[in-house]
Design a binder for these strands. Structure first.
Length: 110
DNA sequence: CTCTTGACTGAGG
DNA sequence: GCCTCAGCCAAGA
């Protein structure tokens, strides 16, 4: 697999798929890992297109650990349920102990 | 080609 | 710590 040949979206998917169980990361972290430090929004944009793929989009939140993309999931709290089923505590769309469950691709895939 | 729209982020008040 | 503003890049109309 040559990431350079993959489309931006596909690269985002590859990173998202590598997020460990029970962990989460941010759009910005993925963007930085992809070399597009200013492309955090593009990551979210890609996630929108990730629907229907094997991409754990529920493990990707904004830098505050807020489930800003929950409205893109079915129902009103599916995203939160998925996270809690993995052991991630979520209250009011806000991930608890965010620093603890946060997974930095640039650090893990170093 | 130009304009709008975001699942974002960092800086400033 | 919260709110607002502006920059950011890609895709679609």
């Amino acid at each position: 697999m040559k990431p350079e040949t993959l489309n931006f979206f596909e690269r985002v998917y590859e990173v998202a798929k590598q997020i460990p169980y029970g962990r989460v990361t941010s759009y910005g972290a993925i963007a930085v890992y992809l070399g597009v430090e200013r492309g955090a929004r593009m990551v979210g944009y890609a996630m929108n297109n990730a629907h229907g793929k094997d991409v754990p989009a529920h493990r990707v939140v904004n830098r505050k650990g807020l489930l800003t993309g929950k409205h893109h999931f079915e129902g009103t709290n599916l995203m939160q349920q998925l996270l809690e089923s993995e052991g991630v505590e979520v209250v009011e769309n806000q991930i608890q102990n965010f620093d603890y469950v946060f997974w930095n691709p640039s650090d893990a895939l170093l």
